[in-house]
Design a protein around this nucleic acid. Structure first.
Lengths: 211, 211, 211, 211
DNA sequence: GATGAATGAGTGTTCATTCAT
DNA sequence: AATGAATGAACACTCATTCAT
């Protein structure tokens, strides 16, 4: 683990570019090996199979992403910010976003792979999974809000969509802006817009008719 | 002879579900034929090749979508609505959205295919293409706005992102809400939010430093 | 038979050019039908199978060729000309060659097909067959000659080769000279050369060692 | 590792006989593999594709043939022999023919493949190519001859035909005489006959009318 | 006479994977 | 730690042919 094998590194580098270029399903292990200058047998010494190779590329960045998310969401009352502009502790939230973006950009290859070339792997629904997790966290707070606002209930489609575009904002950044500094500037503007959305759209008048 | 061929219909139905399940690239023509209860040769009587089979499913709905877009965007000053809330002719725009959603929902299978399972076909960048077209239309008006607003210029990242989430709003609807009526209700809310975004985010202070 | 069917004619014309272009084996019945503007079923109304279609093109010219050869070789002592220059009745032989060439050129398509694109059909050894037939005729006379020339025997390899290049002279003509008149002029020169070969090379000293 | 691979040898042997029997186009890779006792995948480990397999069989013998031809034709004044019987250095020419025949017979399989079963490969016009090359060499000398013979010009059809049957003489040998020793004896006789043809037929009276 | 539809076996080729060495 | 060889199933696609209508 300390002295990582050179062949393994070459294989991973070669795999990254092949997966990026062709997508997981159409990527050829033969070509990955050929470009790494080794034979197919070598690959199978280091990796169980094709999927394991893919996993090896994205696993650590992904794990660390979940760590970052976990840390953020377990800080009490943290999520209130999102809905309650008055108590919006800008600093805290900004630090989280900054951390997130930094992590995404230092592992940009891996995340681009996950987001756009993972069809056929166990990670093919990566973005949906993240959305689901985040949405669940947000939901707790949304329910609190609804409880304190008479005659209003959660509009769950909007909950879902807002979560979706919130995550998607990061994805779009990663795929369209290669400079991390600019990415942060963009995200600052976008965050304000997203917060306004959370405030405006999450609640709707109670309606017994709505299924 | 008058009536459309039954085998062809069965093949298309079988293809739809195979493409949906596996994606274009991993879909097996053998399985499509087997599920349709015919041999592989039969498929090639009706379709030139795999891509032609895919195209047969999405072509007409796609063509009609472009017709709808073309009609909308060639109506003069139409696009001003998006930026200028005062002259927002709600009715007109609503009719357009209604038409669009109706078209998307009456051809839901085809559009889901196009949006999520077209990797490997000529349509694999379908959404990006649409975004590009729409963005180009919006850009004309954005430039007009910028001209009349001293000290401000277009923030092109926001232009792009707003276009992206505007289109994505329809995509999300299609993939998450199966009921057309509810889809319309959702979209009405979302549209207001999107308009607010166009107004707030498209322009930024002129800055000669920004590249 | 009198009023030959138009579709059949079109099929034959289309088949000719497809066979010519691709050779028998790689020719596609589908394409032949498509170019003739009919469906595959129509072809099978007129022809038993692929080989029958090919046969229909070459059969009559081939049959007539054999008639011409038969007529020529059953005229008594005819072949002596070839070996005995003193009794070489130039006129007769020239008329035969003229007739032969005329037949070959009026059915050039068919013979080119037979000679260069019949691989895979019953006619694939067409030229060898002709060589064998002619050689058999020549052999009778060669044996006569040998009988009257003491100490000499037939060199059967040369018999075969001379027959081969004699036939091949016509083939080369057909494939390299499109003008019938010039073909005749060439053949006149060639014939003299061939006759000299027959005279010089067919007999060799008797040798009991030769197997 | 040192010794050539056994499977590869078996595949080549199997391929030779399949190509010989069916011709290139109709030869089945599956049957070649089955007869070699391996699976189709194995073939693709050693050869890029069907054509590469064919090439592997004929490439070396073909290359060496061209070497032999090149060496022969770059010896100065060598070609004059063919036309000028007085300076005909029998010995030299005989050595060349001997070499040629030896090469053809030690690689008989490959050349039979090239000559009779290469339709569909890059080598399908092999004989025509050789004829063209040789004819070009001969033409240089023929033009010299014509220059020194007043009132005479080259009969280019005869040039071409003589080259053709000269090459064809070797082809006929290869296809009809399996014994190399006898082949040499035959060729000795044939060569004399061919030389007489070159002398007699290549020139014709100048005629401004001939196109 | 001819069509339109369908068959079923065949093609060359690529793939992820395995394993003795 | 890595190679070279081989597997066997799968792939998209083409073919000559058949046959009810």
């Amino acid at each position: 683990m300390g002295a990582d094998n050179e062949t393994k590194e070459k294989l991973i580098a070669s795999a990254k570019s092949e997966f990026m270029e062709k997508g997981y399903a159409k990527a050829s292990l033969r070509k990955i090996c050929a470009n790494a200058g080794v034979t197919t047998g070598a690959l199978y010494f280091f990796f169980k199979d094709k999927e394991d190779l893919f996993r090896s590329i994205v696993e650590r960045p992904l794990h660390e992403l979940f760590e970052i998310l976990k840390n953020h969401f377990t800080e009490d009352s943290e999520l209130m910010n999102v809905f309650d502009v008055y108590v919006h502790k800008d600093g805290d939230h900004d630090i989280f976003v900054q951390l997130l973006i930094h992590h995404l950009y230092t592992n940009r290859d891996a995340f681009l792979l996950l987001l756009t070339n993972a069809q056929g792997t166990a990670f093919e629904n990566f973005m949906d999974d993240i959305v689901e997790i985040i949405e669940h966290e947000y939901m707790i707070n949304a329910k609190n809000m609804a409880k304190h606002t008479s005659g209003m209930q959660i509009n769950s489609y909007m909950m879902h969509w807002m979560t979706h575009i919130s995550i998607d904002a990061f994805v779009h950044l990663l795929t369209h802006e290669s400079d991390e500094k600019k990415a942060l500037q963009h995200m600052s503007i976008i965050m304000d817009y997203l917060v306004s959305g959370w405030v405006k759209m999450i609640l709707m008048p109670e309606d017994t008719n709505t299924n």
